[in-house]
Simulated scan of single mutants.
Amino acid sequence: MAKNITIAQVAEQAKVSKSTVSQYLNKRYEYMSESTRQRIEAAIEELNYHPNSIARSLKQKSTYTVGVIVANILHSFSTQILRAIENNFNANGFHIIICNADDEPEKERNYIEMLQAKQVDGLIIFPTGGNLDLYEQMHKQNFPVVFMDRKIDGLEINTVMLDNHRAAQLAIDAFVESDYKRISIITTSIIRNTSPRVERIEGYRQALEAHGLPVREEYIRTADAANIQNELNELFALDAPPEAILAGNDRVLLEVLKYMKEHQLVIPDDVAVIGIDEVAFASFYTPPLTVVTQPTIDMANKATELLLEQIKSENKTAKTAIHRLQPSLIKRGSC
């Protein structure tokens, strides 16, 4: 059985103190010369030393682990954010545990309780909105937590999200510039008042009014992804069907594109389309798809920064805020 190498053996091999090796392991390189750093690195490689993360956790009262609970991992936005969050925490010496709640509050509750039982140092949550008691409990206990993508009214928890009103406005402006007047919006269900979906509909209404166009309620559709085809059937059965459709997220966009193909509708000649959220195939679809993008890397960076501040701060009751980042329009051929 291989003998465990200790930090003392690394220090002896590198001819430095144990505290200097500890500083190296914690990436505090400013406390040592380049030659010292190289000697420690060489000693670690030669001895095949692996830090004992359990012992480190006990000593520093930290597991160096954070949990991320995403509402629905099927969204391209979610996977892009998760990738950037993982990179950020890895660079800061933290592991992350990723959980997918499937937009189910009970599943989210189980994950929150499990991650806290594992003594993670903090949580980033894309909240379902269905566990107010748990959110409030974490807030009262000063447990480090950041909400991503969705806000919960009445709770003072740091939140990072898109300016959703602006996202809808950018799309409507693009449609109007191309002389479309009958414009529909379709989002996934708003049964739990999910803030991005609600706000995008609000932004849609405001943008139409700003352009002097009527807001037609029959053009506003919300449904679970499985029922969006039915909503599209009803839309195109109207006496005056829409000339343009704003897809509220990537899953809606996929359903819209599927409908267009099955009904042999040509984009944008028959119906113009804009989606909120960039999708991998947007630039080479026929025609290339106009989209409103979210600054996923900036959002991930902000959430990481806010959570690390809470984890490292003695003052866990620091001021909280909703941080809204700005979308941008990528104009292509579908509008």
Rank of each mutant, 00 (worst) to 15 (best):
A117N: 02
V145A: 05
R221V: 14
V273L: 14
R28P: 02
L325Q: 13
H139I: 04
K15W: 05
K140N: 15
G130L: 08
E262Q: 15
S328D: 11
A244I: 02
F281H: 04
A117G: 04
S22F: 07
F94L: 01
F143E: 09
Q9E: 12
A272W: 09
Y135E: 10
E156H: 05
A42Y: 11
I125A: 06
R39T: 00
E86L: 08
Q137T: 07
N87R: 09
Q23P: 00
I274N: 03
R332C: 09
A117F: 06
G154N: 01
K107Q: 07
E314D: 07
D270R: 11
N233C: 13
L82W: 07
T194N: 08
M1P: 01
A282I: 00
L213Y: 15
K118P: 06
L25D: 03
A225C: 09
M32Q: 10
E314T: 10
K316H: 05
E113V: 10
R216N: 12
R200K: 12
Q116F: 00
K61I: 01
N233E: 15
A8P: 00
E177M: 05
G154Y: 04
E243T: 15
I276R: 02
T320C: 04
A171F: 08
D149C: 09
G248F: 11
K27D: 03
K140A: 10
S17H: 04
E106D: 13
L208N: 12
L115K: 11
V292E: 09
D269L: 05
E30Y: 06
T36E: 00
F284G: 08
L308Y: 02
I124Q: 06
Q310S: 03
L47P: 01
N52L: 11
H139M: 05
A303H: 13
S328H: 05
D224M: 15
M1R: 10
A168E: 13
M260E: 08
G333K: 06
Y285R: 01
Q13F: 00
D224N: 15
S328G: 10
I245C: 12
K261E: 15
A8V: 14
N131G: 07
N193I: 05
S189C: 01
R192F: 14
K181Y: 00
R83Q: 13
A14P: 06
M1Y: 13
